[in-house]
Design a protein around this nucleic acid. Structure first.
Lengths: 278, 278
DNA sequence: GTCAAGCCTTTGTCCAGGACATAATCTATG
DNA sequence: CATAGATTATGTCCTGGACAAAGGCTTGAC
């Protein structure tokens, strides 16, 4: 479509008439992707040459005054950039031990995710470094969750994501804060088709189905997926939607509980009938 | 394409002329998918009605006399089908403790994977049950790997899969058997683009890049991906390809070491110059 | 009867050009 | 300066055509 509309890329053709992209075009496309993720629009970028794009990509973000990564994360990011995997592991394990799982999730995992995401957008973090981070963090969280007993039989909470949502860290963070409270969680992993979610919820006798949406998940798909699931799922089973992507839902949906913050998740759990307040 | 060619499915159209599929058509498509995974071809199935398809799908496989799931797995599969997650976890944890990680991988994980795969093909295992299995197994394996020290600095092995290969268990099994030997492994998780693999290998100073392919990964993509990576990666870095899908490569490729079996992986590691034989 | 080589059928994926809903931006008005 | 409406930009769908690659079948040799 871009080729038709903007004249870029203009691939060569192989013997069968199929498009073959030059390496330098692919490099430009990678730059475009990064800039578009930052909010630029394709029409404006397409005409620029690689150098201009690279300069744009290298330029620092307009400093979202929201939150600069806390100073102590610099140490973590340094270890990650140095590929000191043992150091990365130690940092996380130590933070977990010092803070406890609940505080660790809120004050280390969440801000670190934001810092990594920001680094990815600004190009200071490579793809494989982001993967390494995710991999190590998943290990730490899973390890911590595994050691917690589920002493509250209700509500039984089924956790998963819809097809297309591959971001597993959000799910693990939710499971972690719930596990701390002793909640009975069953995680199905990511990308579960709606009919299978329904079937799993019924078979498990789940009281709640919890979905996690990352900010990258298309807004339309969030609404459609939730509506789909809500109409298929028996009304007696609650549906909770969390993660940054759940913010895409502007107006409240009947029978869908939005969970904008991890704190909300804990509150919802504690407010469930039969869950003793601590 | 099927609609054009076979007349099925014949979706209704919404107000914008876009296809809307009836739930019963989707159900038939799910059956078709399952049967095609078993080797049936679409042209033969398309004309049949749902009942016939369901009967076909329910029919047992022609009993691949290769290996019936060992009797003791029945207990595990029963717990999985009963959604007794605590029981599933206990079974795996107990097997791991009894057998040790090396034997656990070879004699429990590998055959269980086969049994689950077979159950999925024959329709006795639901999608969400397969996800649950994968999730629990991943937790066990990651937990076990995390506690092993990497006392051999060389070779440093980078583990990952190519884009499109989402199967993570194979990767974890490889990491587990290597970790038992004290190998220095760095796992990047799944679906890493070739340029990023190269970059990661260089930055980490890896001696080996290990790729895992499941049997479901298209044969052509295995060959293309390996060739691609081999030509981009410096010749000094070895490239190992394992998993059932690596069997798709018929003739040996220069500079690519095929690893048909997990045992081979350990042998390759031990044969690396500088690795002391145990 | 068994096996291999070659032919035919099946099937997936590409191509081109057209259309239009929706999101993003701009403009005019209060 | 804010807001509603107009305009532009952009993604995704549609149709119909083409053909490579894989799979299955037939024929002939031994």
């Amino acid at each position: 479509m871009w080729e038709r509309r903007y004249g870029f890329p203009q691939p060569a053709r192989d013997q069968f008439g199929e498009r073959v992209y030059l390496p330098q075009d692919i490099e430009k496309l990678r730059l475009l992707k990064r800039l578009m993720d930052r909010g630029h629009r394709p029409g404006k970028l397409m005409g620029l040459d690689v150098e201009t794009l690279a300069r744009l990509a290298a330029a620092p973000l307009p400093a979202t005054d929201a939150e600069a990564p806390a100073a102590n994360f610099h140490e973590f990011l340094r270890r990650l950039k140095d590929h000191d995997m043992q150091g990365v592991r130690n940092y996380l394990a130590q933070a977990l031990m010092q803070q406890g799982l609940r505080t660790f999730v809120h004050e280390t995992v969440a801000p670190l995710n934001a810092a990594i995401g920001q680094g990815w957008e600004s190009g200071t973090i490579e793809v494989f470094e982001e993967h390494l981070y995710t991999e190590q963090m998943q290990r730490i969280l899973r390890g911590a969750i595994m050691n917690l007993p589920a002493y509250h039989p209700v509500p039984k909470i089924l956790l998963t994501t819809l097809p297309g949502e591959q971001h597993e860290l959000g799910l693990l963070m939710a499971e972690a804060v719930l596990a701390v409270e002793g909640a009975h969680c069953v995680s199905l992993g990511v990308e579960m088709p709606v009919p299978d979610i329904v079937q799993a919820a019924l078979r498990h006798g789940a009281h709640v189905v919890g979905l996690s949406f990352s900010i990258a998940f298309p807004a339309a798909a969030v609404a459609e997926g939730l509506h789909n699931l809500r109409t298929t799922l028996p009304p007696s089973i609650a549906l909770w939607a969390g993660g940054r992507g759940s913010g895409h839902v502007k107006r409240p949906m009947a029978g869908v509980q939005l969970v904008p913050e991890l704190f909300t998740l804990v509150e919802l759990f504690k407010a469930w009938p039969g869950t003793p307040a601590k």
